[in-house]
């Protein structure tokens, strides 16, 4: 699943380690999510959305919607 996590993180000058600490996960998890290798659980997606004051849909892009559109 594509996402804007890296862009949002760098806008705030956060490292992957910073975001991992804020979200309560490992840096490896943040890296895997940013690269689209791992889809986060719904609770983690909500935590990330709260961190950036955005909705989940504004961070994570449904590829099925993109291909349909």
């Amino acid at each position: 699943m594509k996402n804007r996590l890296k862009d949002l993180r760098t806008e705030r000058n956060w490292t992957q380690a910073d975001l991992a600490q804020f979200a309560g996960v490992s840096r490896q998890t943040i890296n895997a999510v940013e690269k689209g290798k791992f889809d986060p659980s719904l609770p983690l997606a909500f935590r990330l959305a709260r961190l950036f004051d955005l909705t989940i849909e504004e961070i994570f892009l449904d590829e099925a919607d993109q291909t349909a559109g």
Partner: peptide, 14 residues
């Protein structure tokens, strides 16, 4: 921010 203090999970895993 509430979520910025969420380090317990990582400490629990260690």
């Amino acid at each position: 921010m509430q979520t910025q203090t969420r380090t317990e999970g990582y400490q629990d895993s260690i």
